[in-house]
């Protein structure tokens, strides 16, 4: 059986909000090390990989592997019934067909319980090999989100170029073109505003901005984001969690 407790329901609410626009139904695999999810969006352009380590929960118990087949939008609907600072408990018996969610206020004088029906989901999994990327950029998650939002007014695609001078985002459409360039920098007072670039060779890739904007909904989970890119390959975009991560593999647009 699974029993996992979080001190604040907002932690799970934010994670579900970060993935719900891309995923419909998917399996969450639970074992003694924590919860994991790997799922493709409907168009197979983005793969979401979520890891929530058992250390990230205030209490965690899972004696035997449990697969939770869930509709992510149904989970989001139920989570809307929880206050952000409620204590949240997830429970599922072995071979049960439901996930029980309990929301308690801190004084434990209100307890809400919701039972979410589980589904048998026949899901495709991709084998993602360990990859050395040509360029790794760590930057503010909020700045990335803002930059992409600005450029989405110009075009449905963004080109990202990374070299030793910095990282450049550009877009071109009917009304004209625009770009933002960030130089590597260290901000001693606000570490999350630093831009760190590790590079073995310069990279340039283009991506659909609508999908990118869905990915950056994870910005509420972490102050920084790690972008990893290699020419001609999907990018890896990671938001670190206190114990785990939300990671996206994002297929580029390539000249035909």
């Amino acid at each position: 059986m699974l029993e996992a407790k979080l001190d604040a329901a907002s932690q799970l609410k934010k994670i579900v909000e970060a993935i719900r626009d891309m995923l419909g139904e998917c399996n969450i695999e639970c074992n003694e090390t924590g919860l994991a999810l790997q799922s493709l969006d409907k168009s197979h352009i983005v793969l979401v990989s979520l890891l929530l380590g058992s250390d990230g929960f205030s209490e965690y118990r899972c004696d035997r592997g449990v697969t939770l087949g869930l509709n992510i939008n149904s989970l989001a609907t139920v989570l809307r019934c929880a206050n952000n600072d409620d204590i949240l408990t997830l429970r599922s018996e072995d071979r049960a067909n439901e996930l029980i969610l309990t929301f308690e206020d801190s004084k434990a004088d209100r307890i809400s319980e919701f039972n979410l029906r589980l589904m048998d989901i026949d899901q495709e999994y991709l084998a993602i090999p360990e990859t050395e990327y040509a360029a790794t950029v760590v930057m503010s998650a909020a700045v990335l989100q803002r930059t992409l939002r600005d450029l989405s007014a110009l075009s449905e695609a963004v080109t990202i170029e990374i070299d030793k001078e910095g990282i450049r985002f550009s877009a071109e459409g009917d009304l004209g073109k625009g770009s933002t360039h960030f130089k590597p920098c260290v901000d001693m007072e606000n570490a999350e505003n630093s831009i760190n670039i590790t590079l073995s060779e310069p990279v340039s890739l283009s991506f659909n901005l609508q999908y990118f904007s869905n990915i950056t909904k994870a910005s509420s989970l972490s102050s920084t984001v790690t972008l990893q890119m290699t020419a001609g390959m999907p990018a890896q975009i990671e938001y670190k969690l206190p114990s785990g991560h939300v990671r996206y593999y994002f297929a580029p647009k390539i000249e035909d």
Binding site: H44, V46, Y125, L126, A127, Y249, K253, I254, E255
Partner: peptide, 14 residues
């Protein structure tokens, strides 16, 4: 013009 790729063009099914 650039063409949108799918992840299945890069990664095999597990």
């Amino acid at each position: 013009t650039p063409v949108q790729n799918n992840l299945s063009e890069f990664y095999a099914l597990a």
